[in-house]
Design a protein around this nucleic acid. Structure first.
Lengths: 216, 216
DNA sequence: CCTACCGATCGGTAGG
DNA sequence: CCTACCGATCGGTAGG
């Protein structure tokens, strides 16, 4: 057997995992693998109890490598939450624009908002939003302020619908408090919802609609 | 002034903080000071981000002293949660027994349950129940199992009331899901409630009653 | 309940 | 993105 390499590029990758095609290059791919791993672990064990070594291992890297992609553990948490909020906002905006042409009733609009909210929250493989909901205290003041804008945008989508329901008599509680209580009821579901038993996400959404509205 | 002690017990306490009366002895006092400090810090920073040194300092002790009262940091967390659940259960049971003689309507019973729940959750200086609600994942399997019984007892107090409301047509969602959604709406309030602004605990309770019931 | 301490782990970095 | 490593911190303990 000859020691001489036949193709020069054989020499060029002596170590590392093989790369199937040119399109699978590491661009933002590795970075996002870290985000997925971080979201999963932050949710399961909490931010503080998760080590950057855990995250690195889950993404198939060595212990120091996450810091090539993120400045700090904090920055990783922030990036997870930011992606979670963008997912939720995009999902909700497309839900609202879908129904704009048909001019649905306020009741139907709330139904859409609730179902979309549950889907983002409880859908398979979406750990980003739960982390956003349950690790707020781990953020710095500056990070909170930045995310607060996205949260305000999200809540603003609900207000006109709730206001219309209040005016129409289907929602009797004060609108501001109603929003907090309703979103709380929905958000708390990440603590107990189990897709493998009990109600489905769809059934859960319908139960919520029926619970909050005087008629539906 | 004579150097000779008049009472022999003056000699018996050469060091330590002065003790006002015999009744204020350290018995379970120091232990409970640790529990209070732990509850406060676990709530504010989370279990994992709180060090046993933080807790010791907040209780006026040295770093190793908490382990004289508790076997481990885990045991401290468990004790905090257990006390939280006992507080909630006792509060709710006395609320229910208060109204038994007068035979209130199911609507009034739910009103009592909701108000009592908010008071325990949002009342001043009660960090025990919030820790119970938000640090569940930090417990071991065995600890979870032990607390699950107390939680089941607590939830069982709500079921007959919700069932009666469902039968009476004031609550249309399935009773099991309704309980989860309602308690979720209430529990989430620890994330946003601020006694210094917005609604009071009482107003919040009334808003919740009005939100969930078809008539009230 | 304090003093003094240990072994382990953790976030992060230099230099490639 | 890996190797090798540092300084700091942490839960817990022995012995009083």
């Amino acid at each position: 057997m000859s020691d001489a390499p036949i193709f020069s590029d054989v020499v060029k990758r002596p170590r590392g995992r093989p790369r199937k095609t040119v399109d699978e290059r590491d661009d933002g791919n590795r970075r996002h693998a870290l985000l997925e791993a971080a979201a999963h672990l932050f949710r399961r064990k909490g931010f503080s109890a998760t080590t950057t070594r855990d995250i690195a291992a889950a993404a198939g890297m060595q212990s120091g490598s996450p810091f090539y992609h993120f400045k700090s553990k904090d920055a990783l948490l922030f990036a997870v939450m930011e992606e979670g909020m963008h997912t939720a906002l995009n999902r909700q905006r497309s839900a609202l624009s879908d129904m704009a042409p048909s001019q649905l009733s306020a009741v139907e609009q709330l139904r859409y908002l609730i179902h979309a909210h549950f889907e983002v929250l409880l859908g398979p493989g979406n750990d980003f939003v739960p982390v956003m909901l349950y690790e707020w205290r781990s953020l710095s003041k500056g990070q909170r302020k930045e995310l607060a804008q996205l949260i305000a945008d999200y809540e603003a989508l609900w207000m006109p619908v709730l206001q219309a329901l209040h005016t129409g008599g289907q929602l009797r509680a004060p609108v501001g408090i109603a929003r907090l209580l309703i979103l709380g009821a929905l958000n708390w579901s990440v603590q107990w919802f189990d897709p493998k038993k009990g109600a489905s996400v769809k059934e859960l959404g319908e139960a919520a609609v029926v619970l909050f509205l005087k008629e539906s």
